[in-house]
């Protein structure tokens, strides 16, 4: 299963304070360990919300709100995508993550909705049907 590991923002990250060299290196090594274990799929850190924009969608209207946004703890400061066997394994990895921020910080683990979940949730009938009339019904790969 794939999970998104969301690193929540803090007052410090929102203020644009860069992590200490130590914290940065610890995170680098953690990421390397994840890569070596074949767990890491993707990841990135995000700039603070001062550089963000929000688009509010209501019917046909689109309203743009410029950052920064309040409630630092509800904002996302970075993410990684991991491929793990189950939530227990994701938790075991998360428990050994260094703290990317000075002081208290939070991370959140959210499993992906995968194709099979979609199929179940929407009870998609017939989505397998590909455009007809294509040539090469031979399974060329």
């Amino acid at each position: 299963m794939r999970v998104m590991v969301i690193g929540k923002a803090t007052e410090a990250s929102e203020a644009g304070t860069p992590p200490t060299m130590e914290a940065f290196e610890a995170m680098e090594r953690f990421i390397e360990e994840l890569a070596q274990a074949g767990v890491l799929v993707a990841g990135a850190g995000l700039k603070n919300s001062a550089q963000a924009k929000r688009i509010v969608i209501e019917g046909d209207s689109r309203t743009v709100i410029d950052g920064p946004f309040a409630e630092a703890r509800e904002l996302v400061a970075g993410f990684q995508i991991w491929e793990v066997k189950d939530m227990d394994e994701a938790m075991a990895w998360a428990m050994r993550s260094p703290n990317p921020m000075p002081g208290r910080s939070e991370m959140e683990i959210r499993p992906f909705i995968e194709a099979q979940d979609m199929a179940q949730a929407l009870n998609l009938e017939g989505t397998h049907e590909a455009p007809s009339g294509e040539r090469g019904r031979l399974g060329v790969a």
């Binding site: 690193g7 940065f24 990421i31 390397e32 890569a35 890491l40 990841g43 850190g45 400061a77 990317p100």
Partner: peptide, 13 residues
């Protein structure tokens, strides 16, 4: 958390 996985392999020393 800062870089995409694309360069993860390049880190190996």
């Amino acid at each position: 958390m800062r870089r995409p996985v694309a360069s993860a392999g390049g880190l190996a020393s």
